[in-house]
Write a protein that binds this DNA or RNA. Structure first.
Lengths: 226, 226
DNA sequence: TGATTGTTCTTCGTATACACTTTGTCCGGA
DNA sequence: TCCGGACAAAGTGTATACGAAGAACAATCA
């Protein structure tokens, strides 16, 4: 993995700190760095093939985003989302994504709706192929696309961050449930297309309730507690 | 609040980057650094009497929080919230603070309610003294306290961040309106004390609608555009 | 005038040094 | 065996210096 990252880092022109941050985030979300794992600056610097400075800057942002916890004079460890905060996350997400659905319904252009429909099609296809990873990916894309259509940058960035965390905690569970949630997604896109804000909001709430229930069920066997 | 910061800065051994970040945030919110103003690392390092490293780390976090914009290879400038995003901020805040009010109503202990009542009393007093700055400060404290009582760390941190931004944009306007909003605050605390989530949520929505309207009115003459 | 070339400022990343904390280990004594 | 303290190691926190690269701006030349 270290080599892959180094290749990527060398090729692009983005500031190293951003590349390190992105790599760190995905490494944490993908479970390459497990909750509670210690992340010393030297180690990360070596893993990513950079010096300590970019690593430190990336760590500060990762802390602000809630992916790591930094203990003064003791360094950073991968954050451990406790099962207690799972409900908290979903409660907030529910409100935010409901709002996003409403705004999207009120503002979506025909092209927007078309792009959502395209995602639904691809999702149905991937489901038929039993390509769970792809379904999960499309799932993400759909949600993020709705946020984007909502046209509210604050809402978008906050909900996106929350969404990443949910993915992190329920990486596996979400992938399994993805096909089942597709019917709910169709309802949601239909509602957005209709331009009916209330209806879109209800659809989003229904979807999130189901997702929340599934996630919580899954958490019993997951690594929620630590 | 300023005193708290100063105490911390002097007394404890907080990492310099955190002190710099806090100082930077308040400097921006207080308008010491104006939107669009250029923030070179050297300058900040000199202003705060530290080396460039802590400044850089603080800047990255400040960027993640939306207080500054960093242009690659060109450095940081104080962010310029456009009036377009003001509505966006309030729409999101409305949802989040309504949720906070509901949760607070459902979870508040007698001690929690007492602390809110104490803030209301101090606010009434300060209003009578026409001490607008103090009223605004108590206003903030009250809102943050409700967030804390809600017991949802995600909600709390997100709403707090949004709240800081609102304060930043409407520093002046908020202070003027503060006395008028006090009646709404009393309604809100009453609702929280009653334990009626629906009622608390409605009270929060009413309050934010009024605040939003006032803020928006005020924005016409403020520095919304740049 | 307009394009080109320098010059300067600043960021970005690297490297190094060192104080200070925390942590772990080892050793002697009860 | 267990305890406690000395000691060493590891790692962060901070400062500093340096070179490379980019951006902005001024000056120069066709």
């Amino acid at each position: 993995m270290a080599e892959d990252l180094r290749d990527k880092l060398g090729a692009q022109h983005l500031p190293l700190r951003d590349q390190v941050l992105a790599a760190l985030r995905t490494a944490i979300i993908d479970g390459d760095y497990l909750p509670g794992e210690r992340l010393t600056e030297d180690r990360l610097a070596e893993d990513f093939g950079v010096s300590r400075n970019p690593v430190r800057e990336a760590l500060r942002v990762a802390e602000a985003e809630g992916f790591v916890v930094i203990l003064p004079r003791r360094g950073a460890v991968v954050a451990s989302p406790s099962s207690g905060t799972i409900t908290d996350m979903f409660v907030v997400r529910e409100r935010l994504e409901a709002l996003a659905a409403r705004l999207a319904a009120e503002r979506a252009t025909a092209a927007d709706v078309a792009s959502l429909r395209a995602l639904l099609d691809q999702g149905r296809e991937a489901t038929q192929r039993h390509d769970l990873a792809r379904v999960a990916e499309l799932n993400s894309t759909l949600h993020l696309r709705i946020l984007q259509i909502s046209g509210n940058p604050w809402l978008s960035s906050i909900a996106k961050s929350l969404y990443l965390h949910v993915q992190w905690v329920f990486r596996l569970g979400a992938a399994e449930r993805a096909p089942h949630s597709w019917a709910e997604h169709i309802q949601l896109v239909d509602a957005i297309e209709s331009g009916d804000g209330d209806r879109a909001e209800r659809a989003a709430l229904d979807h999130l309730d189901a997702a929340s229930a599934a996630a919580y069920e899954n958490a019993e066997g997951g690594y929620g507690a630590r």
